[in-house]
Amino acid sequence: MSRESDCREDVRLLKKYADELEHSVDNVQTLSGPATWTGPKSDRFRSEWSGHKKQIKDAVANARAAIDKALKRVEQEEEDKKKTGTGN
């Protein structure tokens, strides 16, 4: 396997994990709603959760951007190697 194909596989997995994390965050939001959980502790959790949810979603978005940037860098390096004829 080439470095680029290894990177593409890593990117695929990282994006899959990011999707799963976002799905889990959405599930927490749904499962902790007032229809399933009431009382002062639930109100406090939902208040705190909204901030945590934003931080998690922002971190995932930043990770996705870094993943895309890393893949582009590897693709460019591999293209440059082909142009110059240098190997591994």
Rank of each mutant, 00 (worst) to 15 (best):
Q55K: 15
V28L: 06
W49I: 06
W37K: 02
D26C: 09
S50V: 10
G87H: 11
V60D: 01
K54N: 09
E75Q: 13
E79H: 12
K53Q: 11
S5E: 14
L14V: 02
D6K: 15
T38K: 08
A66Q: 12
D19W: 04
A70K: 07
E75T: 04
E77H: 10
R3N: 12
E77P: 03
D19V: 02
T38Y: 00
S32W: 00
V60E: 00
A70T: 00
K69H: 11
K41Y: 10
P40D: 15
S5P: 03
V28P: 01
L14I: 03
S50H: 09
W37Q: 04
N27L: 14
G39E: 01
P40N: 15
K16Y: 11
F45G: 03
T30Y: 06
D19R: 14
A63L: 14
D68A: 13
G87N: 11
D6Y: 15
R46N: 03
E20H: 11
N27Q: 15
D26L: 11
S24G: 13
S32R: 04
S47Y: 09
R64W: 01
D80R: 13
S5A: 13
P34K: 07
N88H: 12
D6E: 15
W37H: 01
A63T: 06
Q29I: 10
V25I: 14
